[in-house]
């Protein structure tokens, strides 16, 4: 294949990775930014989103788009509820202690994973894409659905950004992030904000999973890679910085796509990890993060 089309394919693949990664990492970043909780179970909320998407889309007969749309709405809501429950039952009782919550979310990771294994099973199951249009380029074919993932993800990112910067809810969240004690003094129900943010973070991961599941497959171990990549993105972008997260996701996604197409996927992972190390050494707060006060 010639260099031009080769690069185009690499960029497309990279953008799809970026799109999903940006949503997942944004959830992780939001939870850390506002709550100072490192959510190790984040990848499992991603997996739950995919598994629920399978369950919902198989329960609804008719055109595959119906089942998929239902999954796109319902799966994140259910995952959000589960996250809310976990926040109430576990994180709040630990007073959001940073060390204790890491241990607790590791526990949640295993509990959710094993529950999925018990009730969903060890198989990888496919979800039918809402439409299967193959874009025919002169050099190779490409899935139209994959392109729509990029668009959907961009829309969701813009929506999240609008909520955070243009609404009262967003203002409250940012106030809590900036200084939770002062926020509480001004009558902001900080614990309810925490609960909402934790649920929102999980929902973002779940939405990303619903989008990716028609081209991947739902599997109980699928949460591991997104978790690792999200951490990489969040560290590079700066924990708690929305802009940094999106920029880093595009950076990591594109470099992953291009390096794995031209060289090898292993090299792409090596370079991403090296980048994390460099950022940690030279700019510990991340590219767009602010130094901790």
């Amino acid at each position: 294949m010639h260099f031009g089309p080769h690069l185009l394919l690499a960029a497309l693949e990279g953008l799809v990775t970026s799109a999903v990664l940006a949503l997942t990492a944004l959830g992780l970043s939001l939870v850390f930014g506002v709550m100072r909780v490192v959510n190790v179970a984040h990848g499992e909320f991603f997996m739950l989103g995919a598994v629920l998407a399978w369950a919902i889309s198989t329960a609804i007969s008719g055109h595959p788009a119906l089942g998929f749309l239902a999954a796109l709405v319902l799966a994140p809501l259910i995952v959000g509820l589960i996250a809310l429950l976990a926040e109430r039952l576990v994180l709040r009782r630990l007073n959001y202690n940073p060390e204790a919550t890491i241990v607790a979310t590791i526990g949640m990771l295993y509990i959710i994973q094993q529950l999925a294994l018990t009730f969903y099973g060890p198989e990888a199951r496919p979800v039918e894409p809402p439409f299967s249009y193959r874009i025919l380029l002169p050099w190779f074919g490409y899935s139209g659905y994959k392109l729509s993932i990029i668009a959907a993800s961009a829309l969701l990112l813009v929506a999240t950004w609008l909520v955070l910067t243009r609404t009262k809810i967003g203002l409250i969240m940012r106030a809590t992030q900036y200084d939770s004690e002062t926020a509480q003094a001004f009558g902001i129900p900080v614990t309810r904000v925490y609960a909402g943010v934790f649920a929102l973070g999980a929902m973002l991961a779940a939405v990303a999973a619903v989008l990716i599941v028609p081209i991947s497959q739902a599997h109980y171990l699928m949460g591991q890679d997104p978790l690792l990549l999200s951490f990489i993105v969040v560290i590079i972008g700066g924990l708690g910085s929305l802009r940094g997260t999106v920029v880093a996701a595009v950076l990591i996604g594109l470099s992953d796509g291009i390096i794995s197409v031209f060289f090898s996927p292993t090299l792409a992972k090596i370079i991403a990890t090296l980048l994390v190390a460099m950022v940690l050494v030279f700019r510990p707060q991340g590219l767009f993060g602010t130094a901790s006060r």
Partner: peptide
């Protein structure tokens, strides 16, 4: 879990693709 990125390595003059994959993502 994603394979498209490997396919450009298939030379254009290939007459037969001999494939054998395992794992949860074979359908993908």
């Amino acid at each position: 879990s994603s394979f498209t990125k490997y396919f450009p390595q298939i030379p254009a003059e290939t007459e037969v693709i001999y494939h054998v994959m395992v794992g949860p993502a074979v359908l993908t």
